[in-house]
């Protein structure tokens, strides 16, 4: 876990510094006012941000901050990064959770039905539905949704974020749409996974035994089949969830959501090293932690698995 995170940190640090230009340049020179600022001023600005220190020193400082749970301040705004991230994180987390719920609610029933009716029209319909989900860019689905609302209902979802605890309805009216657009795409992988693992499990001997002893079909499905088929599905949903936190970049743009994805694009464009590093580290640690939790959950869901 920690070596991987350290690797991510090093890679991000290096990649960012390979990107041409830095935050000072992005602020003064790229704005087309380069000629008004002397080299000395730019050097001064860099010194203020600690960009004049040797690279290893910058890295060590950053790591030392992380160890003390201090993410530092944004190079662009000067505000503490925790403060920059807080609200946006809440938004992205909520959309990710809602999208996961949408995906789970779609994927598991559809996957089971498709597996039970293998090679009938139901199965084909589910498969086409899920492949279409994989093929449709969620940002386009978002555009279509907004277009549909506008043309049919002359209504637009609210464009300003209200936290859930302030006004739950307003909040849901805004966030349910991106959650649906992303959730559909994300359900596709999980549906296919449910279908294929169910198909595998349904061919097992113990299912035949259960059927032979005249067990109620529903019980066979729930207790014998689904319980054994669900593991890989849980993995898929979990991993996708972790990626959603940072991977909403494009969908957020469509729905005008001020989430982590948008922040990330901005941070890269402004060469805001500290903010970009913090965001990448946040998303990849979410991924690594979820991965770890999955392993723990595996052992819990499947008593056959034991870790030494």
């Amino acid at each position: 876990m920690f070596p991987t995170l350290l690797g991510v940190a090093v890679l991000t640090f290096v990649l960012l510094r390979i990107v041409p230009g830095d935050v000072v340049e992005a602020r003064y020179v790229a704005a087309g006012q380069g000629q008004f600022f002397s080299k000395e001023l730019l050097a001064q600005e860099r010194a203020k941000l600690g960009l004049d220190k040797p690279l290893w020193r910058q890295f060590v400082d950053w790591m030392w901050g992380i160890v003390r749970l201090d993410l530092g301040t944004s190079m662009w705004t000067g505000a503490p990064i925790t403060q920059e991230i807080k609200l946006r994180f809440a938004l992205s987390l909520q959309v990710a959770i809602m999208a996961s719920i949408v995906a789970t609610l779609l994927a598991i029933p559809l996957g089971i039905v498709a597996a039970l009716k293998q090679d009938t029209w139901v199965d084909y319909a589910v498969r086409v539905f899920s492949i279409a989900g994989l093929a449709t860019p969620s940002f386009w689905l978002g555009i279509l949704m907004i277009l549909g609302f506008l043309i049919i209902f002359r209504w637009l979802p609210p464009m300003v974020y209200t936290p859930f605890w302030v006004d739950p309805w307003q909040n849901l009216a805004q966030l349910i749409w991106p959650a649906l657009a992303v959730g559909y795409r994300y359900s596709a992988v999980a549906t296919r996974m449910t279908r294929s693992t169910m198909l595998e499990v349904l061919r097992e001997d113990y299912i035949r035994t259960a059927r032979a002893k005249g067990l109620w079909e529903q019980l066979i499905l729930k207790r014998h089949a689904l319980k054994n088929a669900i593991l890989p599905v849980v993995t898929v949903i979990g991993l996708e969830f972790a990626f959603l936190l940072g991977g909403l970049v494009v969908t957020e743009q469509v729905f005008n959501l001020n989430g982590l994805g948008l922040l990330f694009v901005e941070a890269i464009a402004r060469r805001d090293y500290t903010l970009t590093q913090a965001l990448v580290l946040l998303v990849s640690s979410a991924f690594i932690v979820v991965n770890f939790l999955m392993d723990v959950m595996y052992a819990w869901l499947d008593p056959r698995i034991r870790y030494r």
Partner: peptide
């Protein structure tokens, strides 16, 4: 494998974004 693990813990689009920026 460790190196691959590092690369895989970035979401696809984020790594692609960073690459385009570079």
């Amino acid at each position: 494998q460790r190196l691959m693990d590092v690369f895989i813990s970035f979401p696809l689009i984020i790594l692609a974004l960073a690459m385009v920026a570079i």
